[in-house]
Computed example of a mutant assay.
Amino acid sequence: MKFRRMLHRFFALLQFRVLQPLGALRIAVGSLAAAALVALMSLTPLAPANAHDAVEKVEPADGSTVASVPAAVKLTLNNTPIALGAEVLVKDETGTSQSLGPVVIEDNHFAQAVKAGAPAGRYTVEWRIVSSDSHPTGGEAVLAAGALMTGRYVRRNPRGGKRDDGNGARQ
């Protein structure tokens, strides 16, 4: 019985004097390691995010007035898009599509034919493509055929949400 009590006291003393300080040491070392990791990560420069493909040129130019309805609308991207699901709609003032046939993609250029005899007036060109980095992207441009008007290019988020003026400013 006495031996049991001595053994019990020995283990209690061992736990109090040896094991508890080791637990506190583990916590201190873990906290120091976490602080060092955070400090190291704050010193590491962040890489800039890569932007998705963007339309560099619209023909006829966005906001322009042309003498007659063009035979085709052409767009140029900064990279070659993926042909899957590419769509360009050329809509007249009433919202009727004046697009003719499928979108033609060659390298980083894509074109949409316009119906012959399309009426003069304001046109909205809307596009949606899959960019070379496999993200969907889209936008719109406005032009006038045979009438004066002003407009500007805006890139919109194809999943909804706010629009982007191409310089990162949200509208």
Rank of each mutant, 00 (worst) to 15 (best):
M1G: 08
M1K: 00
K2I: 06
F3S: 08
R4Q: 08
R4F: 12
L7W: 08
H8S: 11
H8Y: 10
F10M: 12
L13F: 11
L14T: 05
L14S: 05
Q15F: 15
Q20N: 02
P21Y: 07
P21A: 12
L22H: 00
A24S: 07
L25C: 08
I27K: 12
A28F: 07
V29S: 08
V29W: 09
V29M: 14
G30R: 11
S31P: 01
L32C: 13
A34D: 14
A35F: 10
L37Q: 13
V38E: 08
L40V: 13
L40T: 11
M41W: 11
M41P: 02
T44W: 13
P45C: 06
L46P: 01
N50C: 02
A51L: 15
A51I: 09
H52K: 04
H52W: 02
V58R: 01
E59A: 09
P60Y: 03
D62M: 01
G63S: 03
T65Q: 15
V69Y: 06
P70L: 01
N78H: 02
T80K: 14
A83T: 12
A83D: 11
A83W: 01
G85N: 07
G85R: 01
V88G: 08
V88W: 06
V90G: 05
V90F: 07
K91S: 12
D92Q: 04
G95W: 14
G95K: 12
T96I: 14
S97D: 15
Q98F: 05
Q98E: 14
S99Q: 10
L100T: 05
P102Q: 11
V103Q: 12
V104S: 14
N108C: 03
H109Q: 15
H109L: 10
H109I: 13
H109F: 06
F110T: 05
A111E: 11
Q112W: 03
A113D: 14
V114T: 09
V114E: 03
A116C: 06
A118N: 07
A120L: 14
Y123W: 02
T124G: 04
V125N: 04
I129R: 00
S131C: 13
S131I: 05
D133K: 04
P136E: 05
G138R: 07
E140Q: 10
E140R: 13
E140I: 01
A141T: 09
L143M: 15
G146I: 04
L148F: 10
M149T: 07
M149A: 12
G151S: 04
G151V: 02
G151A: 03
R152D: 01
Y153L: 15
R155Q: 14
R155G: 03
N157A: 05
N157G: 02
N157W: 09
N157P: 00
R159Y: 15
R159L: 15
G161Q: 10
G161W: 12
K162A: 09
D164P: 04
G166M: 10
G166L: 10
G166F: 09
N167R: 07
G168W: 14
R170N: 06
Q171W: 10
